[in-house]
Computed example of a mutant assay.
Amino acid sequence: SRPRVSNDNPFSEALFKTVKYAPTFPERFATLADARAWMEDFTDWYNHEHHHAGIGLHTPADVHHHRTAHVQQARRRAIEQARQAHPERFAAEPALPKVLDLPTSAWINRPDDPAQAEHSSAA
């Protein structure tokens, strides 16, 4: 909500919102140990089960471990099998639905100058 503010990280803010609105987030934790245990379970779910729209509906673990190509290939096969089994459920255009691509980069404050952006991402 505050563009170009150096002490506001949209990635951590998005994670905080995901934590806060998780269905299992309690109103209160009884102890610090309970909070730590909940956060450990949440982190495992977030990294290995939660499919993130910003990374092509992959899990962070799939991206980190370079499994996205395999997952995308499996998704394409599943879509094609479903299309062949039930063509009436799909639009005439064969490109729909499509498997989402991964972003090529992520920015907090992307430079306005494309040359700066290219130089910064190479560093």
Rank of each mutant, 00 (worst) to 15 (best):
R2N: 14
P3F: 01
V5F: 08
S6G: 11
S6E: 09
N7H: 13
D8W: 04
D8R: 07
P10D: 03
P10C: 07
S12Y: 00
S12F: 00
E13M: 11
A14H: 15
A14D: 11
L15D: 04
K17E: 11
K17Y: 06
K17R: 13
K17T: 07
T18C: 10
K20A: 12
K20N: 10
Y21L: 04
P23D: 10
P23A: 11
P26H: 10
E27D: 10
E27K: 07
F29P: 05
A30I: 05
A30Y: 05
T31M: 13
T31I: 14
T31Q: 13
T31W: 12
L32W: 07
D34Y: 11
A37S: 15
E40G: 12
D41W: 12
F42Q: 01
T43Q: 08
D44G: 08
W45T: 09
H48E: 03
H50W: 14
H50K: 15
H51F: 06
H52M: 08
G56W: 00
A61G: 09
V63I: 13
H65L: 09
H65R: 05
H65W: 01
H66K: 15
R67G: 04
A69V: 07
V71D: 00
A74L: 01
R76N: 03
R76D: 02
R77G: 03
R77N: 09
Q81P: 00
Q81H: 09
Q81Y: 03
Q84M: 03
Q84D: 05
A85V: 04
H86L: 04
H86Y: 04
F90N: 05
F90W: 10
P94L: 02
P94D: 02
P94G: 02
A95I: 01
L96D: 02
K98E: 10
K98Q: 09
K98Y: 05
L100F: 04
D101F: 03
L102K: 02
L102W: 00
L102C: 07
P103A: 12
A106C: 14
I108L: 15
N109R: 11
P114K: 05
Q116A: 14
A117H: 10
E118G: 02
H119Q: 14
H119W: 08
A122P: 00
A122I: 04
